[in-house]
Each structure stands twice: as structure tokens, then as C-alpha cells.
Simulated assay, not measured.
Amino acid sequence: MTQHAVFLSYNSVDKAAVTEIAHRLRACAIEPWFDEWHVAAGDKWQPVIEKALTEARASVVFIGPSGVGPWQDEEMRVAIERRVREPGYRLVPVLLPGVTRSTHGVLPPFLANIRPVEFQSGFDEEPALRTLIAGIGGKPPGPPIAPAIAASSVTPDRKPPPRATRDSYLPSRAGSRTESRVYELTVHFERGEDTLDTRYYLPGSDAIASASRPWSTFEAPLGSIATALDTQPVASLQDLIDRHAGEWGAFLFDLLFGSAKQWEDVLRTLFHQPLPATRPNPPWAPVRLRIVARDEPLLLGLPWRLTA
């Protein structure tokens, strides 16, 4: 994409709403061209807007209860003309709260046959934002996560053994992009005869992903960690954990999430970062991590916090 992936066209009365959505697009690695941010004081704004319209790979036309503004109408017509000339150019209508597709005459005729994105009550609606991001990239949004089996309903068969010295919460990292928000993820392990099955849950959802890996990959390292923890005097237990933080942390992260391809899918869903957003880093934000393990003592009481 070009430096500014999408041009935002709006009626000036809807500026506050569009500003909030622009911030959310940037948080998802979609760089918008927004006149409030990109027209310098003293510039002639018409040539700047014309240049932005011709360079952006997509345009979003916001329509609120007040309809299309005079200058917005000109921008919209340029975008419609580009869409006719350039098959790959994306033009996405967005209906702001207070406007629906059933509102009489809400969509100008040349936009009426294009599927719009609808923000029905606010601008933190994850399905609408996901649909908007997918539309800018020319991709379908895919199915939403259907609420069904709550992750909290999955419980361990017994408590961890005494070697558990810390809870399973991952602490927040300094400089985290979204420190004000804590995300929750349940990782459910189930040991088969020769496999370790792993399922991932968000609160109030079915499993968002699953994996099955050979148990032999993890058995010996887990046994070594468990023996070290169980035989260490309590007074020096923390020193032992600190000495092995890097080695054990990397192993436990691999145990939790597997390969980059596996954890990328899980973290995209957890952090609400669908494609085409850049791949989230594991320390993107604080995560409240809940570990559930059935019938396998080696998985209980481990220093999971090292995965931070």
C-alpha cells in the first residue's frame, strides 16, 4: 500500500466520529489520509486533497444523519470515477450511528449498489471495524466469533501441586501499545496417549484455535523443570527461576503457542488485529492467561509468568 492507504471523506459535522475511527484504523496498521492530520497550516487545501485522492489506494465515504457535505460530494465523485477506471481501487461507504441502509435516500445513487459498513451504536464495534478493514483491503471479513461455551466453564480436575509459587497472569510490559486494556485467554491442555492437544478460548467463545503435537516433544524438558522446582529449597526457589528465565520462558512459550504461524492466528484474534493489519508481537498488551491442564501433573505448577 502507499503511505496513506485510504482517503477519508466526510461531512464536517461528522468530524468527531471520523477522528475516532481514524485512530482505530491507525491502531490496526491502516494509515488513513485525514485532512485534520495532513493539511499543514498555510497550505492551499484543495490541491493537497486532490493529490491525496489520486495517491490513496482506497477511499472511505462516511455518511451520517446530516448526509453528504458539499466538498465531500466532490471528493466522492472523484473516488467513484477512479473506481470505474481502476478495477483494483476500493470505495467503501460507511454508515455512522443514526443511519441505516433502510434510511430513505441515505446512499447516493452511485454508492447504492456497494455494500456499506454500518456502525450502529458506537465506534468500538469490533465486527464493523473488522468489516471496514477487510473492505479497504478488498477481502471478505469472514465469520464472527460466535458466543457459546464460556472459557471459564473449563476447569482443571485438581489444584496445582505446592511448587506453584506465582499465578498465571502475564504482567504488563513497559511501553506496551495498549497498556490500559488487559486481554484474557484460556489455554486448555489435554494429554492423549501420545499427543498433547491444545485449545484456546476467549471469554464467552468456542475455541478460537486448536493444535495437536507429539507429547514426546515436551515430556523430557517438563520432567527436568518439575524435578528442579520440586527439589529446590523454598528459600532459593526464586533464584532458581531467575537463573533459568530465558531458557524456561522460551520453552514454555513454545509449549503454549507453538510455531509463529500458530500463535499469529491466536494473537490476531485475541488482540483484534485481523489481516491486513501487521502481525502483532506477543508482548502487544497485558494478557491475563489462564492455564487449564487435565490428568497431567507435569503441566501443573509451572512458572508460566516467564512467557511474558
Rank of each mutant, 00 (worst) to 15 (best):
K159G: 08
S152I: 02
G142N: 06
I149Q: 13
A146G: 06
G138W: 10
P143L: 12
P144H: 06
P140K: 00
P162R: 07
P160C: 03
R163F: 03
A151N: 14
A148L: 11
P160I: 03
S152Q: 14
I145L: 14
G137H: 01
I149H: 13
P141K: 01
G138L: 12
S153L: 06
P144A: 03
P140V: 00
R163S: 02
S168R: 05
Y169P: 04
P144V: 10
R166P: 04
G142V: 02
P140L: 00
L170V: 09
S153R: 02
G138P: 07
A151L: 08
D167Q: 12
A146H: 08
P160V: 00
Y169I: 03
P160Y: 02
S152R: 13
R158Y: 02
S168P: 01
R166K: 10
A151M: 00
P162D: 03
T165C: 07
Y169W: 09
G137Y: 00
P140R: 00
S153Y: 04
A151D: 14
G142M: 07
A148D: 14
T155N: 07
A151F: 01
G138S: 09
L170T: 08
V154H: 07
G138E: 08
A148K: 08
K159S: 13
S152H: 11
P147V: 03
A151E: 07
V154W: 15
P162G: 00
P161L: 10
K159M: 15
I149R: 15
R166V: 03
P143D: 05
R158K: 12
S168I: 02
V154S: 09
G138F: 07
A148E: 14
S153K: 02
T155M: 11
A150M: 10
G142T: 01
Y169K: 14
I136N: 06
K159D: 15
G142K: 01
I136T: 10
P171A: 07
V154Y: 14
Y169E: 02
A150G: 15
I136S: 08
A150I: 08
A148G: 14
G138A: 04
P141G: 02
R163V: 03
P160N: 06
G137M: 01
P147I: 05
G137R: 06
G142L: 10
P156C: 15
D157M: 14
I145S: 09
I149K: 10
L170R: 12
P143R: 05
R158S: 09
G142W: 04
G142F: 06
S152W: 00
A146R: 14
A150V: 11
P144D: 11
A148I: 06
P161F: 06
A148V: 13
P161T: 04
I145W: 10
I136E: 06
